[in-house]
Design a protein around this nucleic acid. Structure first.
Length: 230
DNA sequence: TCATTAACTTCAG
DNA sequence: CTGAAGTTAATGA
């Protein structure tokens, strides 16, 4: 199942990007965003969905006391703003570029509907992605409430591992890291320092090896069984 | 005991 | 040279 998800995820870029679709080539437009620029604001009308072609985008909401809550961090090949397709009238969150040269491909909702009607397979893929996205969020929420940080980090790594191609078969898995420790901390509801400490624990335990660029899973059994690190 | 805060070092642009 | 990333140890729940 996860392989399918991966498959569709990577191919989405070629499928979705308007300049690959001849009919839309004239309005083919990439939009550039600098660090800190907003792609959309809360309460804005949900007219587009977006595909990240370069850089990194974070989706956030704010709690009553003004604290930022990060719902997701998206990188190359991933879509966001997809709630527009489910009848969302106005945005319920913010989308902000967090890298210097973020490049985004906007797609009108109406066009998306047309495409999805014409191409069933494409429509199915989109629905699947949205479904998985929602499930992922629900799961994250549950974990935040009931599990400790170590479990959450383990779960996070497991999720990344599952998204890698051929991860089912392979004993060792190389995960290219698009996230910083800070990103990971934000996503699992922890702190940068804590993430580092725990990654080091896992490293010492011989479960993983990591650099800034990637996490190498040496023994994937710990993902399912839980790491026994003291 | 676990995770955070704060203070420090290293890294990348 | 500066801000972000990563590390380490003290401290509080």
């Amino acid at each position: 199942m996860s392989t399918i998800w991966y498959f569709e995820n990577v191919n989405l870029y070629s499928v979705l990007c308007p300049h690959k679709i001849k009919r839309f080539s004239k309005q083919h437009s990439f939009k550039k965003f600098s660090k800190g620029d907003f792609v959309y604001f809360k309460e804005e009308y949900s007219r587009h969905i977006y595909l990240v072609s370069e850089g990194k985008v974070k989706i956030t909401t704010y709690t009553e006391d003004g604290e930022e809550m990060i719902k997701a961090i998206l990188t190359k090949g991933e879509i966001f703003g997809e709630m527009a397709l489910l009848g969302e009238k106005k945005r319920k969150d913010f989308a902000q570029s967090v890298s210097a040269n973020t490049c985004i491909c906007p797609m009108e909702v109406e066009q998306m509907y047309d495409l999805m009607r014409e191409n069933q397979q494409f429509g199915l893929a989109i629905h699947k992605i949205i479904g998985l996205r929602i499930r992922k969020l629900e799961r994250r929420l549950e974990l935040l409430f009931f599990k400790d940080v170590k479990t959450r980090l383990l779960d996070f790594i497991k999720e990344l591992a599952d998204e890698q191609p051929g991860s089912q078969k392979a004993e060792q898995i190389e995960i290219p890291l698009v996230y910083t420790h800070k990103d990971i901390a934000d996503l699992i509801g922890s702190r940068r320092a804590t993430v580092t400490t725990m990654l080091n624990e896992l490293k010492e335990g011989g479960f993983i090896d990591y650099t800034r660029k990637s996490i190498h899973i040496l023994d994937k059994s710990f993902l399912t069984e839980g790491a026994q690190v003291s």
